[in-house]
Structure formats: structure tokens, C-alpha cells
């Protein structure tokens, strides 16, 4: 059997989930024996204009998606990635609940943009309108499961390396991960 093809994607999150992935430490070596990293922000696949590049997202067995859906790019990327992944995992609390990025749901988008780009800006006060450079914010930050079908939920802010390992191991061994306090944590 060939290697399992894994990809990871980074939407509206702080990259903490990816950092926690690196905390797999020596288990990364074990993982690399059986899995191949096809695409990930922590491999050297640089993205500058996300949508164009994500058109090339490869067909994979498993994708881990970090981050909430906060802007129009996130929606398009997520849809492409879903299509090309056999299994899609919501990776961390932002992807699962909206979490910290969703705090802005308490305010109107215009008020958020005004506050950041005009009221609190010291230079060049204007709200960027060129959506190729800065994608448009959605009215509300939403969990990825509100946009595409999600197969598994890997909770935690960030998920512990042990939770990540447990989930990946289960999937590699064709087992159903079991959601419990022993295997996962909120927050």
C-alpha cells in the first residue's frame, strides 16, 4: 500500500494548531514512514494569493483544517479542499466553534473595520477595498462545519499533540476516534 496522503490548511486561526502538530516531536518521524505531506503551510508551499494557489490543492486522503471561516477566501478554499479530501478534519476550536476569531460576531463588520483601519490606525487611514489583497470579511465568523461536511472534530485550543496523534492513529488504523475526556479537551 502506498503512503497515506495528508494535507493541512490554515484559515482564520492563529497557527497554534499547526504549532501543536509540530509538538508531535519524534512521532513526526513515525508518521513520515507511513504518510506523505502533500500540502501544508508548514511545508515550503508558499501562498501569496490564496485562491489561485489553492486551485492546485492535491487529492489527499486526510486534510486537517485549522481556523474558522472568516472571509470569502476561506469559503472558496474550504470548498476546494473538501472536494479533494477523502477525510476532512476540523482541526482545533476555531475550526469547530469559531472560538476567539468569532468574538467579532458581537459587532457589525463595518464597525470592526472602522475601528481597526480608521479609528485606531495611525497611518494611511482607509478600509482596504481591493479584495485580491485583502479578502472581504463575512458578516459572521462561522465554524467550518457550517460551510462543508466535516468528518471528524479535533477539539482544543490548541488540540494537544496527544489528541492529534490519537486521531491520526485511529484513522491510519481504520478505527473510529472516540470523543471523550481522555482523548480530547475543549479550550
Amino acid at each position: 500500500m502506498g503512503k497515506v496522503r495528508i494535507g493541512t490548511v490554515w484559515l482564520g486561526g492563529c497557527s497554534g494548531c499547526h504549532m501543536s502538530f509540530l509538538d508531535l516531536d519524534e512521532r513526526l518521524i513515525e508518521l513520515s514512514q507511513v504518510a506523505e505531506f502533500m500540502s501544508s503551510p508548514i511545508t515550503d508551499w508558499k501562498l501569496h494569493t490564496p485562491i489561485k494557489e489553492y486551485q492546485d490543492y492535491p487529492e489527499v486522503d486526510i486534510t486537517l483544517v485549522e481556523g474558522a471561516v472568516v472571509n470569502t477566501d476561506n469559503v472558496e478554499v474550504l470548498k476546494i479542499v473538501r472536494e479533494r479530501s477523502k477525510i476532512l478534519i476540523a482541526f482545533g476550536d476555531c475550526a469547530i466553534t469559531g472560538n476567539v476569531p468569532a468574538y467579532r460576531n458581537l459587532f457589525k463588520v463595518e464597525d470592526v473595520l472602522n475601528s481597526v483601519y480608521i479609528e485606531k490606525a495611525t497611518h494611511n487611514q482607509h478600509v482596504p477595498s481591493d479584495r485580491v489583497v485583502v479578502p472581504r470579511l463575512l458578516g459572521k465568523v462561522v465554524p467550518i462545519s457550517h460551510v462543508v461536511k466535516v468528518d471528524y472534530f479535533l477539539t482544543g485550543c490548541p488540540p494537544s499533540a496527544d489528541s492529534i496523534w490519537y486521531t491520526i492513529k485511529c484513522l491510519l488504523e481504520n478505527k473510529q476516534p472516540e470523543f471523550s475526556r481522555e482523548n480530547y479537551r475543549y479550550g
Binding site: 469547530i96 465554524p143 462545519s145 457550517h146
Partner: peptide
């Protein structure tokens, strides 16, 4: 949440102030 096996919330979050 752990007890009932809630891995995610299926409902829309209300985001009331």
C-alpha cells in the same frame, strides 16, 4: 459536553450581546 459526547455544536451560535 464530554459526558454527552459533544464533539461539536450542530446549531447556529446566536452571538447575543
Amino acid at each position: 459536553g464530554y459526558m454527552v459526547g459533544m464533539d461539536h455544536v450542530r446549531f447556529d451560535y446566536l452571538w447575543q450581546s
